[in-house]
Design a protein around this nucleic acid. Sequence first.
DNA 1: TTGACGACTTAGTAGCATAATA
DNA 2: TATTATGCTACTAAGTCGTCAA
Length: 641
Amino acid sequence: MLCKRRFCLKTVPNLLEILGHTEYFSGNRGVRYKINYKKSKLIRQNQVAGSLTKSISRVKVVLKPITRVSRLAFVKKRWEEEKKEDGVKWKFLEHKGPVFAPPYEPLPKNIKFYYNDEEMKLSHETEEVASFYAKMLDHDYTTKDAFNKNFFHDWREVMTDKERSKITDLKKCNFKQMHAYFTDLAEKNRNKTKEEKQMLKEKNEALLKEYGFCVIDGHKEKIGNFKIEPPGLFRGRGEHPKMGKLKRRVEAEDIIINCSKDSKIPEPPPGHRWKEVRHDNKVTWLASWTENVQNQVKYIMLNPSSKLKGEKDWQKYETARKLHQKVDKIRENYQADWKSKEMRIRQRAVALYFIDKLALRAGNEKDEDQADTVGCCSLRCEHIELHEEKDGKDYVVVFDFLGKDSIRYYNEVPVEKRVFKNLQLFMENKKQGDDLFDRLNTQIMNKHLNDLMEGLTAKVFRTYNASWTLQQQLDELTNADDTVAEKILSYNRANRAVAVLCNHQRAVPKGHQKSMEKLKEKIDAKRDQIKDAERQVKDAQREAKHGSVKEKVAYDKKKKQLERLKDQLTKLEIQETDRDENKTIALGTSKLNYLDPRISVAWCKKYEVPIEKIYNKTQRAKFRWAIDMAGPDYRFDRIKK
DNA sequence: TTGACGACTTAGTAGCATAATA
DNA sequence: TATTATGCTACTAAGTCGTCAA
């Protein structure tokens, strides 16, 4: 049905957003609207939003809610229509370049650095690097030898000759005043007045407005990280041999700008020039530089809400769904390979079994100058233990290794006898430090996987198993008669099952125990209230039996109050369970990277749970495509022919 | 075949903003 | 209204995987 209404700016808050780059927007209650502009001269001239703000309230629009079917068709059609030739990512790209880190502000004169108990005035750059260390004095990093050694080495490199000859021992450096100064500064920043905070906010918003967006093929899109990383000390995770090294300041001269030839080229800061301006439309980045600690290229890229990223995300889940069609065959295949005559094939088959069953990462080889972490293909003999029998289970493999970000993976897994025997074979005549799969690496694995299915790589299994688990867990845990709060608990539990599978951990939040105790107190108090209310209901019932209308009304009131209290108690109990189960598990990573969002969208629609309860604003922006595409019947494990 | 490199995704956390509570 | 708890965002490190050259 066509609903014709005249909208002013107030009723269409994000109308601004649509001008110049899209004709679709979301209205109330998550409904997507298609907009037909009625003789809008402004739009036909295709002017940019900024210059039109004053006239917007006069724009007449006809809004037509898009049905689910046409929404799906629309998203797909739009992506089809704008398909580019192979490898081409855009035809037009314009942006304003990155924002550089603010310059270093020297310390006030009264803040002193002492060496060997003697006051010492440091040169500008030496002081700046010292300040990086001083700020971290409270941090665990500064207790680590590697951190201190690397910092001191790099710090000495920026010193003047005079400073270098004098400062020869980090232990004799006293950064305490500097540290106190920065702590104090942070405190002052926190206690800024409302007005000061507002001013700062406006300043940031202005910066975002100017540098935070780009125009790509006629659409205005948000940039993910438009600020250049400021200088500081490298914070590698785990036992990273380079921790504490100086991450130097990045200047325009380090930056490569990528944009269209026919776009307005961004201006470098005054007195500077870009390292290079290139026009490579086969990549998606807007700017890049090489950082000095690990010599890696860093990029300025689009926000996950952008069309380009969204499309890629969609493709990722489509590949995972394709795997679902083939996975039975692939499993049969690798199980047969456990018996192969060739060692390399047996190793490949056992490794693939782990990747599939345990959602292990591929495990590329790493350099010596990185933290010692492993994935499946790079497992070493010391990372597994074999037990013919453990805790009443046969053929148990105990995995214990550090994975990505030096997060420990510990798992006791009963496996098939043949897998177990193969592992014994692989470990024969090997010692600690030797590769478990010495005839295998990720290239070999991925080459094999690509032969089995186009586009198949090791990481597709993680996506596939994560999404499949979510779908299966939601089927199992959701009860249509539950309250919204109970349904959300089920959703979180399904999400948690995935996070456990993928080993997504987090540090126990600060004050977790305290907050749990408080919650328990609240629950006890609520129980007392309920007991009290129950007594009151009983009394009221007795009085109502022989009393007048007034007593009956009072009885009803008491009953309702009791119901309300019981509801509140259930909610608190749910919160308690949820929070405790979540103590060391991070749900965000799987939600953002592994779970086909259409499963969640469909679940919300099917069980009438508002999407806002599952995805926050940023997540909704990232998964816009899925919210548009999926109806209540969408299934990850079913592809319509 | 191997290693280096480039491009992109996946990852946990610090610190800020906002909501809840006292 | 001040304080505390919680949620969100920005940040940037650390993976994966494809390509290219030696």
